[in-house]
Simulated scan of single mutants.
Amino acid sequence: MDFLYTDSWKAPCPYNPKLDLKDIIIYDTTLRDGEQTPGVCFTKEQKLEIARKLDELGIPQIEAGFPRVSKREAEIVKAIANEGLNAVILALCRTKKEDIDIAIDCDVDGIITFIATSPLHLKYKFNKSLDEILEIAIKAVEYAKDHGLFVAFSAEDATRTPIEDLIKVHKKAEEAKADRVHIADTTGVATPQSMEFIVKNLKENLTSAYIGVHCHNDFNLALINSIYGLISGAKAVSTTVNGIGERAGNTALEELIMALTVLYDVDLKLNLEVLPELCKMVEEYSGIKVPKNKPIVGELVFSHESGIHVDAVIKNPLTYEPFLPEKIGLKRNIILGKHSGKNAIRYKLELMGIKVDEDKLNKIVEKVKELRESGIIIDDKKFLEIVNNILK
């Protein structure tokens, strides 16, 4: 296996399998589950802008909202459905006729309808048996299909539902002509192993409906659980931009896309350069600040300070980057500080068109380290000030 490369935009990972995942459907729920983040409330124009940007990225399905929530929400979902986007537009509905009727009035292409199936929810939320819940669910699926909608049925709290019950519920949903069935890890308690077990067992018992996974991030496992779901036989996966959502959030769209693309060599046929702009937009509109070290789009992800790292990155960026930032429309940044070496300083000077001799270079390096250790940030302005003082 050849470990060496010279012209790739991503670093080879020879121990990772190349996944033969075709026709993966990402159904992004930023506008629904993402907006259920406490304190988040998008305006109509904000939702439309996010939907347009998701469509520009090339996301196949967009869950536009929960129309039953309010008249305003229904108006927004309808506006998105009539925006002329390439994406299939979905709306969330409870297993209630009135919810589905509102979704139909919103002109959506399909619905995701849900009801809880775990013993915990059956006892404390519904005080009903599984068979009673199943009857409600099937009527809702049949009603939506009778009205020509794409229907995804989601078993809420699926990962805490006994597998025999989960199979029973989803087989009945399939018999009612549901197009897709969802495994919802509602409280983020699944592990990759349990997700694999559930997906494989469910897949063995279904013949027409395909599987989707909807993962929450309570234990920081949403991304890997989503990937294991796909590896195990699921075809659809739920995401939110920046991983926003209830409690600890959902599977982050940008992380899933780049993990599949870079690590598993899956061609999702997406316009990757749109990602940073989309993530910035959702950060601004949601008011939820993206950490500086956020994977993929954090401002420090392609920044380098350590002298050893910078020296190598100057020669070949992939020595310390898993993929080139230009692939998603970003740029790397060389940060000057206490860990900077001569090559980093020399490189920064070259970028600024400044030439110095070795003696002056050593003095600049020393001054940069000294000032940074005293608490001063060495931005371009401060760096020029240091250089000018030494060159006097």
Rank of each mutant, 00 (worst) to 15 (best):
D179K: 04
L230K: 08
V237C: 08
I198Q: 02
D33M: 12
S303N: 07
E283V: 11
L371P: 07
L330V: 11
F323D: 06
K381D: 15
A178C: 00
Y228D: 07
A344H: 07
E321W: 11
L21D: 13
R372Q: 12
Y124L: 01
E164V: 07
I25Q: 14
A64Y: 01
E63S: 00
R372H: 15
E385Q: 15
N16P: 02
G337H: 04
V88G: 00
I198G: 01
T207Y: 04
D33I: 13
V40H: 07
I364D: 05
N217A: 12
V387Q: 10
L263M: 15
M258K: 03
D379S: 10
L149V: 10
T239Y: 13
S194A: 00
D101I: 09
Y320M: 01
K338C: 12
E164R: 09
L92S: 07
E204N: 15
V40T: 09
E373I: 04
N271T: 11
T95K: 00
D380R: 08
K280W: 03
K342H: 14
D380C: 04
G58H: 01
R94G: 09
K78I: 00
A152S: 14
V356F: 09
E156C: 02
L134D: 09
V241Q: 13
G84D: 00
E254C: 04
K200V: 05
E98V: 08
N205T: 06
E385V: 14
D2C: 12
L371H: 10
L384T: 02
G229I: 10
L120M: 12
V266K: 10
R372N: 15
Y228I: 04
T43K: 03
P291W: 03
V77S: 04
A116I: 05
L260E: 12
K294S: 10
V274H: 04
L268D: 08
K22W: 09
K269I: 02
I231K: 15
F153P: 01
L391F: 08
K177Q: 14
H182A: 11
R247T: 14
E75M: 05
V290R: 12
P60M: 01
P192N: 09
D157E: 03
S226T: 14
E35M: 02
K392H: 15
F383G: 06
A152M: 09
K145F: 05
A173T: 10
I198V: 12
L384H: 11
A152F: 00
E83W: 03
F42N: 03
P38Y: 06
I133N: 05
K171V: 09
I104R: 10
D359A: 09
R372L: 00
R52S: 03
N362K: 15
P119T: 03
